[in-house]
Amino acid sequence: MRSGRAAGLALGVMLDAVFADPRRGHPVALFGRAASWFEGRVYGDARVNGVGYVAVCVGVAAGAGLVAERARSPLARTVSTAAATWAVLGATTLAREGACMASALEAGDLGAARERLPHLCGRDPSGLKAPELARATVESLAENTSDAVVAPLFWGVVAGVPGLLAYRVINTLDAMVGHRSPRYERFGWAAARLDDVANYVPARLTGLITVLAAPDRRRALAVLARDGHRHPSPNAGRCEAAFAGALDVTLGGANVYGGRVEHRPAMGDGPPPGVGDIRRAVRLTRAVSLVAAGAAVLAAWGMARRRVTSAG
């Protein structure tokens, strides 16, 4: 069953590098619309409703992946893995969005930068100046390097197509209903907690890979070890602290989400990130993505060889 997984992951990474995410008709966007429709039928201000909602959405995705994974033809398994990897991976688009933010801020176009920020995160950009937009971009690049790159590759290695599809559904549901609000305080509980579990290992792998890609590995590791646990999220802080150490900046501060202000602890020892640090963060994201892709393909290949050796 593992035959073709490494090749499929490698091909999917290449497809992402060439085509990135389509602006229209992306599979994740289509799922989002279907999930929104389903939410309207099962919503209730109770955890049990949210548990059922998440179970059905994730179960359908994992079941579809399992059908594809059990195809008899190795070529079919490779193609389905490649297609799923391309659909769930966001490495190229993430780096491009970071570069677009850098270009807008370098040109002094705050309007364009504010309009672009929602492509990276859910913060309210309306009142943000250039320094706050720069910090939001760097922090979002750090967190999304895990969510959009390392995590899907990790679950692709561990569980193949079902893992790829289930992870992307979990992460999408967290973005849709897992945030704190009167509507989703209870209904979104299951989505948020499941996303925490699904990202626990990938976030820590992202932190370690970031240390390996950092210009000063000792500093990046020190900041990761000291500050990674300080973030209210069990996972985001590992990524942000590693990026802070790698870039020698300090991340954290007040963030506004739909009129709600949340305060994040300071992570790092350097100055707050400036506009000039965004392109450095983009390069770091690309480096971490490349290392993660190579490691995922090698891990999948090694697992396949071990399985063949054991069978023999």
Rank of each mutant, 00 (worst) to 15 (best):
L141K: 10
E185S: 04
A220Y: 08
E132Y: 10
L298D: 13
C57T: 00
P22Y: 08
A130F: 01
R70V: 08
A296E: 07
G252Y: 05
G160Q: 01
G294P: 00
G245T: 14
V149L: 07
A236L: 08
R218E: 15
M303W: 11
G276C: 11
A71W: 03
A136K: 06
L110F: 01
G270I: 02
G160T: 01
N171A: 11
R230W: 01
V60H: 07
V256M: 08
A29E: 07
A254L: 13
E132W: 13
A148Q: 12
C121Q: 05
M267T: 11
A166T: 09
V169K: 01
M14V: 14
G40F: 06
G50R: 00
T92A: 15
V149D: 13
A175F: 14
R238N: 14
A192R: 03
L205K: 08
G59A: 02
R226E: 12
P162T: 11
H263T: 15
K129I: 13
A266W: 05
A311K: 01
F38K: 02
A213T: 03
T285D: 12
N235C: 11
A191N: 04
R218N: 10
G302R: 15
G294A: 06
M101L: 15
W301S: 14
E39N: 08
A222G: 13
C100I: 13
A281P: 04
G294L: 00
T81E: 14
L30I: 06
L224H: 06
V201S: 09
S103Y: 14
M14L: 14
A191K: 00
D45G: 01
A84L: 05
G237D: 10
A244L: 02
R23H: 13
V13R: 06
S80V: 11
L110Y: 03
F31A: 13
A293K: 02
